[in-house]
Amino acid sequence: MYENFEKLLSKTNKTIYRVATDTGIATATLYDWRDGRSNPKIDKLKILADYFGVSIEYFIS
């Protein structure tokens, strides 16, 4: 999941901090996903999918 998220960050030239600020998902949560300490729940994936204009499946494929 995180690899696809990183691709979107790069493609849109956004930082984790910017995404956190814009979506309301805590920066620490995004870093936990990156570091493998936790996995995103569907509601958070939906927020990210809407934010980036992709489907939820984009993150889980």
Rank of each mutant, 00 (worst) to 15 (best):
M1I: 01
M1T: 08
Y2E: 08
Y2A: 04
N4A: 10
F5W: 06
F5H: 00
F5K: 01
F5I: 04
E6F: 06
E6L: 12
E6G: 07
L8C: 03
K11R: 14
T12V: 08
N13S: 13
N13M: 04
K14A: 00
K14N: 07
K14L: 10
T15W: 09
I16N: 04
Y17A: 14
Y17M: 13
R18V: 10
R18C: 04
R18H: 12
V19F: 05
A20H: 01
A20E: 06
D22V: 01
D22N: 08
D22P: 02
T23Y: 05
G24T: 12
I25C: 01
I25V: 08
A26S: 14
A26M: 10
T27N: 14
T29W: 09
T29S: 14
Y31G: 02
D32G: 09
R34H: 05
R34V: 03
D35V: 11
R37W: 06
S38Y: 09
N39F: 13
K41F: 10
I42P: 09
D43E: 15
K44N: 14
K44C: 05
L45M: 14
I47Y: 11
I47H: 12
L48S: 00
D50W: 07
Y51T: 05
G53H: 00
G53Y: 01
I56P: 00
I56F: 03
I56T: 10
E57V: 10
E57W: 04
E57T: 12
F59D: 00
F59M: 02
